[in-house]
Simulated assay, not measured.
Amino acid sequence: MGSAGPLLKRLHPGDQVSVTVWRHYATAVSWGGLTQETNDNPVGDPDTASALALESLACGTYLLGAGGCALLGARRAAERGLPASLVPLGKATVGAALAAWPACLVGVGWGGPVGVVAAWLVMLPVIGWIVVVRQRHVRRRSPHG
């Protein structure tokens, strides 16, 4: 139930309550005009599902782009190696995938799945900026940069 209020703290042994059941899950308990929702969510955890979807989206987009790059430029890649841009893009992808989990925490606290997506979208430019700044720092320190 999550907490004792407003219903559970008023119940006594023997009180008859009404239980709302949806798809074999007790979603609410009612008694004397008061209703309290349960923590039983019949559709799973939408915040976690949203985070997993965003993580999959980030990784899938990167892999699709990297695969397309490798496929279309196979001859060039065989002669010269893979493009250097794949490394910072891969780092940004890892950052975007990892950012889905703090975004999930935001969604749990405020806004549900919409909060997860909004927090993730806010974090993406920050991750991109960090990767760009880090890449510039690496190039400056490189003897060939």
Results as ranks from 00 to 15, higher is better:
V122T: 07
V116K: 05
A51Y: 01
V94Q: 05
L124R: 01
Q135I: 05
P42M: 03
L124K: 06
R134K: 07
R10E: 12
G44A: 11
V87I: 14
W31V: 09
S50G: 07
K91G: 14
V133N: 07
L124Y: 00
G67W: 11
L52M: 15
P113I: 06
V94C: 10
V21D: 08
P42G: 08
H137Y: 12
L57G: 12
C69F: 08
Q36I: 06
M123Y: 07
W129R: 14
R80A: 14
A28L: 10
A92H: 01
P88T: 02
L86A: 08
W110V: 13
L11Y: 03
A74Q: 11
G44T: 10
Q36W: 03
G111F: 02
D40M: 09
A78M: 05
L57T: 15
G73W: 05
S50E: 11
S30F: 05
P125K: 12
A51M: 09
A118Q: 09
G73Q: 06
T27W: 00
S50K: 00
G95A: 08
N41T: 00
R76E: 15
G81Q: 11
L34M: 08
D47Y: 00
A74I: 11
K9V: 09
A58V: 03
A49H: 03
D47M: 07
E79P: 01
L64K: 12
P125C: 11
C104I: 02
H12I: 02
A28E: 12
I127A: 10
V21K: 07
V43Q: 11
V126A: 15
S18G: 13
A99L: 15
P125E: 12
V126L: 15
E79D: 00
V94A: 15
L98P: 06
G65Y: 11
C69P: 04
L64Q: 09
P113M: 05
L124A: 06
Q16P: 02
A99Q: 09
P13K: 01
P102T: 11
L11S: 12
S30G: 06
V138A: 14
Q36H: 07
V138Q: 13
A99R: 03
A26P: 07
T93E: 08
A66Y: 15
K91V: 15
L82D: 00
G112Y: 03
W110K: 04
P42E: 01
H24Q: 13
A58S: 10
P102K: 08
Y62M: 12
N39G: 14
T27A: 07
V29C: 04
L121N: 00
T93P: 13
A99Y: 00
W31Q: 13
P113L: 02
G73L: 09
T35I: 01
I127N: 10
L124P: 01
P113S: 13
A53G: 07
G14N: 04
G73N: 09
V133Y: 06
V122M: 05
Q135N: 12
A84C: 06
N41H: 04
S50H: 02
G81N: 10
V117W: 07
W22I: 14
H137N: 13
